[in-house]
Structures are given as structure tokens and as C-alpha cells.
Design a protein around this nucleic acid. Structure first.
Length: 400
DNA sequence: AGGTATTCACATGAAACTATTCTCTGAGTTAGG
DNA sequence: TAACTCAGAGAATAGTTTCATGTGAATACCTGT
């Protein structure tokens, strides 16, 4: 009781090195978006007609993660809505992230989410999809207005459920009398539109915009801008920002990652009791972010995934590479021992592919010639994390 | 030696099935007038 | 007769299984020198 009490007492007395931590969260919208002037202006040009109740061209935005796509679009939309309100223009902007599980990752849920944006609820299941579309149409057409619909991570959506939804959405305008809708698609994948229905493709990307990655210098400036507001004066040692930017530049200029890193470094510094952030903190943050991410992902996987993953981790030390067949055998044994039901090899093959996607393992398809074709699997994470993960899996699978 | 045909051990695709969650509908039941 | 209950039909969805087809290159098997 006493020590904890003291801890909190001290904690409160100690001065935080953060001034305004929210600046380092991904939801933060800076007043000034650095190095994106051109893109902002482009987006604004394209969407501006909406303010005069003309239908803007549909817009498609490409760019890798952390290149400011989402930020820029939201920034533009926010000021458009402000102007619209001031001038009594019936403009509505809707932002939807299609990747969010259980929110907007299927056709039905996407439309029901849209309905929610208009202030109505629709049951989460049980209704035919057409019904939901009808409700949406009626809702849309209830008043004269222009709707700007932003679909973020749209590539994830089509990967999962195809492009029929997009086709329907692009066609909506011909069904509406009083409103019009303008689509803004945001995609991380540069080759996204390649395997899209040509009709959808042409109408969706009437205008296209590419966000190039930031270079190291630009990342530094952005970090400084944020750090200045986020941290108190003189809490960052020389070289920290530079190194942080270098880390991110290595990962195709992902600023979000850089900002994350800086925040975690700050938290680590604070926890260790110092009043400034050193490069060591940054390095620690780098490995912590990485390991947290992986462990988090792995523990959130279903049991069957973990049962497949466990033998891989177990053997990763002895063998540099494993093949699907071997793993399937081990997995089968594991299931028998813990008397869970065994999945087919077909399924396990898919699971391995997904674990690869998640970045927990490396699974390359190779041909061993006469001896068949298979995945060559190795663990793609640091050994320390492997050990930690092994323990966690043992617990969650209730092995001894 | 050089060329080609086989063959292995899975990969990959498509469709169908299962189980769960949820709505809607209409028949049967109940309570009140 | 109006309100209520409850079972059954239908939907959406996630996770699988079943069946079918595809595939890259190390070997086996020829062929002609």
C-alpha cells in the first residue's frame, strides 16, 4: 500500500515532459499541413464545385501509408464544410474507413454505416441488402444536398468483397433527383484500380492524385513542428529527431510511424524518470513498437491461427525453414493433444498465407522440383519476441 | 550431353456447407372490454 | 378485439470443407552423338 501510494504521490509531483500529447496521436489535425500544399490545392480545386451545388468529379487518391492522404482530405473537407455552413450551402461530408472490422468492411455494413451518418439506425443483420440500399436512397433524396463521400482504404474493401458496391455507389446519382453524391477514394495500393471493373474504374477515377512519400528532410520538419507543440522546451536531445526521421524514411517515408515512434520514446523517457528524450529512448521505442505490434496481432488471432503458429515458433530455432507439410503434421499432433478439432490442410494453407500477410512469418512459395511445390516458411521476427510470443501462446493454448 | 516428359506436394479457386446472430411475419394465446 | 408471445423463414457473415484444377523445376527417360 505504502510504496504504491508514494509512487502516485511522486508521479503527480513530477513534471511531465509532454505539453500536449494529443498532437502526437493519429487523430490530430494540424492547422498547417507541411509539404502538401500542391496536393491540398488540387483536392480543393477538384471538390470546390460542390460549394456551388455542382457535382465535382469523383476523385481517387493513391499513396503509401503515412504520406498524408487521409490528413489532407479531412483537412480540405473540414474547411469546405465550414464555408458551406457559413454560406448556407447544403453540403455534407462523410468519411468512412473501410478497413474497420465490423464497421464498414462489407457491402451491407458500409451502407448501414452511411445510413447512420444520416442519423438513422439500421439493424446489424437480418435485412436484405436491397432493403438497406432503398433506405439509403430515400434518406439521401430527402433534401437537396451535395454529399462528399470519402472512402478510406478502399483497396481493402474491394479485396474482400469485390467492386459491386462501388459500382452501385457510382450509379447512385442517376437514381437521385434532389441530391448528388461525389466519391473520393483513398487507397494505399498503387496498383489498386488495375483489377477493377472497367466501368467502375473509369467513373471512380475521373480525377486522380498521387501522394509521393516524404523524404528524410521533410519528415524532420514535420516531426519538429509536432514536437514543438507536443513536448516542453528542451526535452529532446540533439539528434533524436534526425534519427527518428531516418527510421521512418527507411520505411518508405511513413510519417505516421515516425510520430508514433516519437510519442513512445517520450513515454519511455518519462517512465524512466528523466526529463529529456535521448537516442537510447528512441531505439528502445523502435523495438518496443515493433514487438508490441506483433504480440498484439498474434494474441488477437483465433485459436486455430495460434495453433498453427506455435509449432513454427517452436522449431524456428532448430531449422531455418519449414514446409507446409511438416507444419501441418505438427499442427495435427498439437490439436490431438489438446483435443481441438483439426482443420484441413487447405485451410491451414490459407492460415499460413495470412500469417505471412500479418508479417509474423515469411512464407515464400518455392518449388522443390521433383519434390513438389510448397511454402518455405521462416519466422520473420526478432528472437526475443519469439520467446515472449511462445510463452503467451502456451498460455492461451493451455499447453504445459 | 542435351532435350523433353513426368511427377511431386502442395498452391489456388470456386462452391457449398455450418453455425451464429438478427429481423420479420403470422399463427396462436392472453387479457380486457 | 387488441396486445402479446413465440416459432419458423430468411438474411448476413465468418469460418470451414469439398472438389477441381494449376504449377515450377528437379529428376527420369529418351535420343542421337
Amino acid at each position: 500500500m505504502e510504496p504504491i501510494h508514494n509512487f502516485f504521490e511522486n508521479y503527480l509531483k513530477k513534471e511531465s515532459i509532454f505539453r500536449e500529447k494529443t498532437v502526437l496521436l493519429s487523430s490530430y489535425d494540424p492547422d498547417d499541413v507541411l509539404y502538401r500544399k500542391e496536393q491540398l490545392q488540387e483536392v480543393a480545386n477538384i471538390l470546390a464545385p460542390a460549394l456551388r451545388l455542382e457535382k465535382p468529379s469523383n476523385l481517387f487518391i493513391y499513396g503509401k501509408t503515412g504520406t498524408g492522404k487521409t490528413l489532407s482530405v479531412r483537412h480540405v473537407l473540414r474547411s469546405m464544410v465550414e464555408i458551406a455552413q457559413k454560406n448556407q450551402v447544403p453540403l455534407k461530408s462523410i468519411y468512412i474507413n473501410c478497413k474497420l472490422k465490423r464497421v464498414a468492411d462489407t457491402e451491407y455494413r458500409l451502407i448501414s454505416q452511411l445510413i447512420k451518418e444520416f442519423g438513422q439506425e439500421v439493424p446489424s443483420t437480418g435485412l436484405p441488402t436491397d432493403e438497406v440500399y432503398n433506405i439509403f436512397y430515400q434518406l439521401l433524396d430527402r433534401q437537396d444536398q451535395t454529399v462528399l463521400l470519402v472512402l478510406d482504404e478502399i483497396d481493402q474493401l474491394t479485396k474482400k468483397i469485390g467492386d459491386e458496391v462501388l459500382y452501385n455507389l457510382t450509379r447512385i446519382n442517376s437514381e437521385l433527383h434532389r441530391s448528388q453524391i461525389c466519391l473520393v477514394g483513398i487507397s494505399n495500393s498503387l496498383i489498386f484500380s488495375e483489377n477493377l471493373d472497367p466501368r467502375v474504374k473509369s467513373s471512380l477515377s475521373e480525377e486522380e492524385l498521387i501522394f509521393p512519400p516524404y523524404n528524410a528532410i521533410q519528415i524532420q520538419d514535420i516531426l519538429r513542428q509536432r514536437a514543438q507543440r507536443a513536448f516542453k522546451e528542451g526535452t529532446i536531445q540533439a539528434g533524436v529527431i534526425e534519427k527518428c526521421a531516418a527510421y521512418a524514411a527507411r520505411e518508405h517515408g511513413d510519417v505516421r510511424r515516425a510520430i508514433d515512434l516519437l510519442r513512445v520514446a517520450g513515454e519511455l523517457a518519462e517512465r524512466s524518470g528523466t526529463t529529456f528524450i535521448t537516442i537510447t529512448h528512441l531505439d528502445e521505442a523502435e523495438s518496443k513498437v515493433e514487438s508490441d505490434k506483433i504480440i498484439n496481432v498474434a494474441t488477437n488471432q483465433p485459436k486455430q491461427f495460434q495453433s498453427v503458429l506455435y509449432p513454427i515458433l517452436l522449431l524456428s530455432k532448430q531449422k531455418k525453414s519449414l514446409f507446409t507439410g511438416e507444419i501441418y503434421d505438427l499442427y495435427k499432433n498439437l490439436c490431438k493433444r489438446s483435443s481441438t478439432n483439426v482443420l484441413t490442410q487447405r485451410r491451414v494453407s490459407d492460415i499460413l498465407a495470412e500469417l505471412d500477410m500479418l508479417g509474423i512469418i515469411n512464407a515464400k512459395i518455392i518449388s522443390k522440383g521433383r519434390y513438389g511445390r510448397t511454402r518455405e516458411i521462416s519466422v520473420s521476427i526478432d528472437e526475443n519476441i519469439v520467446i515472449k510470443l511462445k510463452e503467451i501462446l502456451e498460455k492461451s493454448l493451455q499447453l504445459n
